[in-house]
Amino acid sequence: MEVTPAGGAPGSQEGPAVEPPVELPIDAVRPPRPGRLIGAAVALLFLAWLAYTVIVNENLHWDVIVSFLGDGRILGGLWVTIQLTVLSMVIGLVLGVLAAVMQLSDSPVFRGTSALYTWFFRGTPLLVQLIFWFNIGLVFPSFGIGVPFGGPKLVEWQANELITPFTAALLGLAINEGAYMAEIVRAGIRSVDPGQREAAEALGMSHRQVLRRVVLPQAMRVIIPPTGNQFISMLKTTSMVSVIAGAELLTVAQRIYLGNFEVIAMLIVASIWYIVLTTIASVGQHFIEKRFERGHAALGARVRRNLRPFAKEPA
């Protein structure tokens, strides 16, 4: 049977040249949505009323709030909050990677140790842990380096000197955070295709090289978003340290209102700074995630390729 070319079919393409496609604009009328309008009106009215009551309320002492926003003691507390957040996140991340790697190892002892760690620190309240670390001197009056199980010591420190509110806070926050980061890191490592590990091992890489050069860099894409959430949450969690007088933002605000009785005003000052910190962190998180979303690799390539003509100019 003979196949006729499409154009040669009888009577098909014989008229004038192809007409331009007809434009069919859509200019549809929206159906009325009275429910939405009424809802919006109610919401706006409520917000206006809320703003009004807050602004005209004399018990809120807006002048005091404004004058204390830049107070030296408050800024000092703010700085401690930032330090505690960053340090405990960094230490927590290291502990988390360690615990996650142990959890995925062949050795039952490593797996057990890691499981015990996450089980205990996720199973007890952070508040209790903080008070515990602060009072650790009651259990272990001194720390030393030497022969374990009651042998002689080379160096020895008194717990009372070592454990300040800051170190107790850092210990509590970091060790607790590590237990949560372990889960996040483990999920990240799990997300990497096992074939990656095999390809790296086939090149003769050691376990540690496989982890550092191949697995962890790829796990980062999965690890980064929840770590951002942990960071934001940690900014606020540091306020718990106020139970051991950690000298961070909330502790400082409390100390001030014990003197001037401006309880609500000081709490609002602290809250404003917490909101500023979490907002900045959220914006940062948004940008970091955007970068990692966009096919991390392809983005780098695009940037480099676009830059090449300029880089290669002097030749």
Binding site: G195, Q196, E198, A199, A202, V214, P217, Q218, A297, A301
Partner: peptide
Amino acid sequence: GMVFQRFHLFPHRT
């Protein structure tokens, strides 16, 4: 040397 059915190139490297 070993070559795999699904390549297993490292995606984060050129």
